[in-house]
Amino acid sequence: MDPEDFAGGPGTIDDYEGLPCYRPGSLPPEIEYTDDLLAVYGDAQYALGRLATLHRSVDNENLLIAPFVVREAAMSSQIEGTNVTVSDIIRHEVDSPPERAAADSRDVREAYNYVDAVRQGFARLSGSGGDGDSEGISVELICDLHEVLLSDVRGVDLNPGEFREVPVYIGSPDGSAEGARFVPASPDTVDLLMDQLVAYVNRGSYPPLIDVAITHYQFETIHPFQDGNGRLGRLLMMLQLYDAGLLPEPYLYLSAYFNRYRRQYLDYLLEVSRDGAWEQWITFVLNAIAEQAIDAYDCGVELQSLRDDYYSRFPNRPAVRDVIEYVFEEPYLTAPRAIDATGRSRQAVYDAIDALQGEGIVEEISGSERYRVYEAPAVLDIVGSP
């Protein structure tokens, strides 16, 4: 990293044992409300508001929460270089799973850790995390979620849940400081910068959607952990939107957009540091929110419509309807797990699965006589293609 490349940016260069490290500038930056920025802000605000209406039209929130969280986990893991699919993550929940489509068990565990971290983060902000008290976004919460993300996966030996005490290098093909495209904040400043960032997250300065873009840049530029910063940074965006009252549940999977436009994502982050290109970066994030909110809304409507269609086929069979509900939460299912989830008798669940098979709603895929695994192809078609 050449320090001269960052002379026009909002930050400064710190020396760490002879290594130049970039310290982001203090928040808030000065943002000009151009017509273009206001237009995309309006689009994002509208799309997110419409997405929030899904929350009011379903009687079982897990109908949407379960597939949406899995979608985000799959996309977030793919950004990190895995081949994990939505199906891989869902199958992870099934005992004696069928052959996985594209990922080894380590990659699936990494993605499923993301599912766990999303659920824990939303639970703690809502006050349902165990002690009944809600909490704001804090350094403690950030570190705890980082520890969840890195549990038993790559990076587990890199001090999960603890801020780094060594420098890290971004975009270095050989892993060296000399080849790095960017060297984040000096380890000597990480604690202070994270305290300042969390204070800003809870105080804010601009409308929440703009502050989400600003603070995501700041988090990724600080790069407070040795590994897992990207996954955690994307999760924090959802938590901020929830904390601001703009997202009632984890319905928004921004990782799909960032994965699709990965090069622009990385370039625009760097251009803020080099040139102070805030409008370009904020516009990019607002476009991500708008596009993914539209996609999530359409997905939610499709899921509800499909569920209603399935219900209409069994108007007087409550046990079958209970299993249908479970199918949307777990599109790969087994009879024992469906019995536990629905509370229905063994015979009622087996009869329900037979009925769903007869309608083509589920298909047996394990080829086993004793331990059968079923999938719901129409549900997977909707959930599996963000």
Rank of each mutant, 00 (worst) to 15 (best):
V115K: 01
I361M: 04
V118E: 00
E61Q: 13
G360T: 09
I79V: 13
E61M: 11
P173F: 08
G121A: 06
R307V: 07
L48W: 03
N83W: 04
L286F: 09
V201D: 00
S366N: 07
Y33F: 15
D144V: 00
P24H: 08
V69S: 02
Q226E: 12
E364H: 12
P207E: 10
L193K: 05
D191W: 08
N60C: 07
E147K: 05
I382L: 08
C299E: 11
A352N: 06
D267I: 06
P248N: 09
E17L: 15
N229P: 07
F225I: 05
R124T: 09
A73E: 02
D35I: 13
E363A: 10
E93D: 14
P386F: 09
A335P: 04
I365N: 05
D43A: 09
R307K: 14
E375F: 02
Q78D: 11
V118T: 08
R344P: 01
L64Y: 04
L149N: 03
R370P: 04
V212W: 01
D174G: 12
L239G: 08
I294F: 06
V362I: 13
F284V: 07
V69Q: 02
V272M: 03
Y22N: 07
V379I: 15
D227Q: 10
D107C: 04
Y242V: 07
G175I: 11
Y206A: 08
V156W: 02
V153P: 00
A73D: 06
L356W: 04
Y46D: 11
P20R: 11
N229G: 06
H216E: 11
F122A: 03
L145W: 01
Y332K: 08
P318K: 09
C299Q: 13
E364N: 08
E93W: 06
D95W: 11
A335N: 06
E140T: 12
M238Q: 15
W278R: 03
S205K: 11
E165S: 14
E17W: 13
S105Y: 10
E369C: 00
L247P: 00
E330R: 13
G121M: 06
A52S: 14
E4I: 13
I214H: 02
I289Q: 01
R234V: 08
G161E: 02
I142G: 00
R234N: 12
I210A: 04
F258D: 00
A101D: 14
Q196H: 11
Y257F: 15
D322A: 15
D88C: 10
V198L: 09
E249D: 14
E147D: 12
S151D: 12
E17K: 14
I282R: 00
Y217S: 06
A44K: 01
S96A: 14
M194I: 14
V379R: 01
L247W: 05
T53P: 07
V327N: 01
Y268T: 02
G18I: 13
Q120P: 00
L125R: 06
A39C: 05
A7K: 15
R91A: 05
L19T: 14
P377F: 11
L19A: 10
Y112F: 15
R372P: 04
E369F: 10
D95S: 14
